[in-house]
Design a protein around this nucleic acid. Sequence first.
DNA 1: ACAATGACTGAAT
DNA 2: AATTCAGCCATTG
Length: 111
Amino acid sequence: MSHSGFFDMVYQVVKMIPPGRVTSYGAIARYLGDAKSARMVGWAMNASHNTDSNIPAHRVVNRNGLLTGLAHFPDPAYMQRALEQEGIRIQENRVINLDEHFWDPMVELSL
DNA sequence: ACAATGACTGAAT
DNA sequence: AATTCAGCCATTG
């Protein structure tokens, strides 16, 4: 197991996503200055299971609001259930009104 | 060392 | 408007 700073930075950002909000892999990658590495953000999420910290990985969806990572949770229904508990409506594995829920670290964390 | 694979995305067709 | 192509780069076979 190698710990690259990139993974840790991803976790930092994901942990800052407020409940009831979601962001995308690309948005996180862009915030970290490596917009081309959206896939690596997904990889970091895959590895997040191995960490002790509680990473709200269910709040990370793709740019279309599609719950592409749902299959990687212990229970495939967990991701949708967790989001619905936070007041986000899901239909056909997709976030409804993504615009209202989208949390862009580039905007929200810009200083 | 080479090729394939992905929790992605934006451009091209 | 919908689908396909092509970069992307760490990880795995």
